[in-house]
Amino acid sequence: MLLSLLPMALAAHAAQDVEIGCQRLRIALAPALDAQVVERDWGSGEPHQGPNATLELVGCNGKVLSQLPLAAPLARLDPQPVRGAPRPTYLVSADLTAEAGSYNGPLTSAVEVVSDHLQVAEAKPAKGKPVPIQLGLTGKSAWQRVQGRSGESLLAVRSQREAGEFKTTYARYHVVGKAWVVSSRTRPGLWESDGDFPAETEFPGPRAGRNGR
C-alpha cells in the first residue's frame, strides 16, 4: 500500500548533498550507514541501530554552520528547492516506517536556510499559531508538490479516526507575500494511500494550475 506512493513523492530524494552557491546541504548518517543502505531499506521498516541522521549546512570554508537533527537513522534530501518559497527551502525526509501499522512512514519537513541557520519552515493557519510544514507518507496520508506560475504549493491529505469515525483533512501549504500559509478543510470519510491522490479541487486555497512530482 505504502510502496505504491513512494515514487510519487520521493523519487527525487536520493541526493545526500546539494550545493547552494558555495555552501552545501548534506545528510550526515551514522558511520554504519551510507546512501546505498538508505536506498535499499527505505520504506521497508528494517530497523537500524545507532544515532539518527542529521541535516548539515556546510559553509564556503568547509565548516559546519548549522545542524538540524532528524527523526530517524535513514534520511533523504530532495535536491530540488521549493520554487517560490520566501527563503531557500528544501524537502528533507526521515524514514519512520515500521513493519506494521498504517500510520507509520517517511516524514518530510520543509527546511529553510536563514542567515546560515537551518530551521523547519512554518505556515500560518486561518486561526491559531504557525505550524511546522511536515508531510507524512503512510497508509492513510500522502502529499504532492504542485507547480504553479509563481511557485509551488504542497498538498497533504490525512485520514484519522475521531470519536469512532474516520475524518479526512485536506491541507494546502502555499506562499502569500513572503510567508507560508496553510489552508485546510476536514470532511467525514476515509482516504487510503492505495487509492488515487485526491483531485486538487479538494484542497482549499488558490489552485496552482498543474501537478508537479
Rank of each mutant, 00 (worst) to 15 (best):
S66D: 11
V82D: 11
L57C: 09
A9N: 05
R161W: 01
P69L: 06
N104V: 15
Y173F: 09
H174A: 01
E192V: 15
G50I: 06
H13M: 08
Q147D: 07
G128M: 00
E202N: 10
Q36Y: 05
A15C: 14
A75M: 01
T54V: 14
F203V: 11
A126P: 00
D17E: 11
A32S: 12
P79N: 12
P31G: 09
A94D: 14
R87M: 01
D196V: 12
R40C: 00
A75H: 07
S102I: 15
M1K: 13
G128T: 02
S102W: 14
G45C: 08
H48I: 15
A85D: 02
S193V: 02
L3I: 05
L74C: 07
R149M: 02
R207Q: 15
P51T: 11
G195P: 07
A163G: 04
G59E: 10
A156S: 13
G101P: 15
Y173G: 01
D41G: 12
W191F: 05
L190C: 03
L55G: 08
A123T: 03
Q160P: 00
G50Q: 07
R213L: 12
V37W: 10
V111W: 01
L68A: 04
W180K: 09
V181L: 07
L25C: 11
G50E: 11
V176L: 03
V18M: 03
L5H: 05
P47R: 15
G189K: 09
C60D: 14
V157H: 01
D17T: 08
T97V: 09
G84M: 10
P51V: 07
A35Y: 08
S159G: 13
V92R: 10
S102V: 15
T168F: 06
T169S: 10
N211H: 09
G139D: 01
D116T: 07
D41T: 02
P132H: 02
G50L: 14
G43T: 10
P132W: 08
M8F: 03
Q160L: 02
K124G: 01
S66T: 03
Y170T: 10
P51E: 14
L190S: 07
N52F: 09
Y90E: 03
V64G: 06
L5T: 15
S93P: 13
A11V: 09
R87V: 00
G164F: 14
G136V: 03
V111Y: 01
A53D: 14
S184T: 02
E200H: 12
Q49P: 09
T168L: 10
G50R: 14
G50M: 11
D78R: 13
A14D: 14
R26F: 05
P86A: 05
K140D: 04
G50K: 11
K129W: 06
G212T: 08
E99P: 06
